[in-house]
Write a protein that binds this DNA or RNA. Sequence first.
RNA 1: GGCCUGUUGGUGAAGUGGUUUAACACAUAGCCCUCUCAAGGCUACAUUCAUGGGUUCAAACCCCAUACAGGUCACCA
Length: 553
Amino acid sequence: MNDKLKELAELMFPGIEKSVEDYEKMYPERKLEEGARVTRFAPSPTGFVHMGSLLSAFEDYKAAKDTNGVFYLRIEDTDSKRTVENGIVGILNDLKNFDIIPDEGMIDEEHSIGEYGPYIQSERKEIYHAFAKDLVLRGLAYPCFCSAEELDEIREIQELNKERIGYYGSFAKCRSLSVDEAIEKIKNGEEFTVRLKSPGDFNKKITLHDEARGDIEFPENDLDIVIIKSTDKLPTYHFAHLVDDHLMHTTHIMRGEEWIASFPIHDQLFEIFNFEKPKYVHLGVVMKIDEEGTRRKLSKRKDKEASVEFYHKEGIPKEAVKLYLMTIANSNFEEWFLENPDSDLSEFKFDFKKISASGTLFDVEKLLNISKNYFSKLTANEIYDNLLVWTKEFDEEFYNVLVNNKEYAISVFNIERGGVKPRKDYTSYRSIRNFVFYMFDDLFVSPDYGWNKITDKEEIKNILNTYVDKYMDFTDQEIWFNKIKEMCDELGYASNMKEYKKNPELFKGNVADVSGVLRIALTSLSNTPDLFLLMKLLGEVKVKERFLKCINN
RNA sequence: GGCCUGUUGGUGAAGUGGUUUAACACAUAGCCCUCUCAAGGCUACAUUCAUGGGUUCAAACCCCAUACAGGUCACCA
């Protein structure tokens, strides 16, 4: 019988010489300090990273880094249909944009670093085959010759009889094939998959100790799942998970909650090989609320904010995105960051217990708020440098303006910056132009003046002319403002807000309205930083020019 | 249909039997400050933790049932 099994195994996996033990020796235990975690990000090479994947990559990275562990990148390309050209480089770039640099794994389409490779599954075929062959030899795996049609038939029967669906027990036809029959079919050139001969009992229970969710109980797996596919002889996820995560010595499997249900399979596989089991952490999916108000998974196809590239294009700083990811990754992070606003992210320790089990709603508002606060802490020089990089790629016109007016631009970014109550308005590099365009003649081309309180053209002209003729004085803020008040008195506007509020009918308007006219004439906007600072920076000549331009408009 | 998970305000959530009359943050509204914004300060915003029942002197927290949402049951990961 043993010889027969040998013959079968040889037929199924010709030329596979190495044994499981050989591989065990080739990939010895990692030499890491006590408690160091080994994690991995294992995407399919589909070209770009989804927000949900980025979150999990970030969590993997953080979990490893917190313990001086290892974070590696493994490419799961066992589904050739999904593989995309240059997919690995795309993933690497997306990760790099968020400072997630793997310690090991693929570094471009063909090369990798690290001692536990290959880090791309299509190149690990013979390793999987060695493990599968071992199973065949032990009578724990067998070739299955069922066609897709036959499998469909089985399912239909099961559905009809309201029986549990799957390839198990008496439904597992090929399980009962004799070794001789199997040998003969293979010799006849019949296509086959390799299935696990599951030793599980559906009536027995096993427990998943999820690091984030606690204990979850399941029936044992009794499905004879496919471990090696027929056409390309590549492993299924389940089998690759066993082989790779064992040989690469992953300590913590962090993955989406859609994997919870297949835990019994994975547990059984580790059990059969008597391998040390990794710890599991299942992450909630990232959701969004769509137009109809229903919750659904954030979709790469439908939602622009789902693709990581979107943040790059919008110019939302990676630091802000990371802060946001951390706040949805660990519920206690937000409070910690509030108490330690100047601490580095690396000082916060990621905690599996603080991972939310329910799907997190992706909240762009909150991200922008975090981004806004982040911008408020930058210096004008930092903003200039970063903006230069961003505009070079996405806004050539603005880029040229910045290059030609470096010192001036920095002064503009410096308005109301710093101090205890810094200005908070920029939310992204893209948004900056809308907040400062009026400070640059080249960008202030055909302004759309947003008159609100005082809209009468003649009155506006009157105010502007009077101001330029008699009251323009930039000596200092107090003098500047006193002059405006004087002008208000002359023109019949209230210079004192309290008096105005007492008797509004005595005045044409108030000093705020008049200031508003000056502000809009100068910038076209009713919402800008301190008007005095703007005027002073632009200088008398420019201010006059602007008012003239406005009058003639 | 079987198995599994989740359900605290507009949002993210804290909280696992009694100093919680449910933290904190975002959003929203109002007031103050102010030339205008932004910021900041103050205030408001769940009499209630999906629903129903039970256990208990006491429940968001324990138990049961129901509802809703999601996952999974592929030679996809």
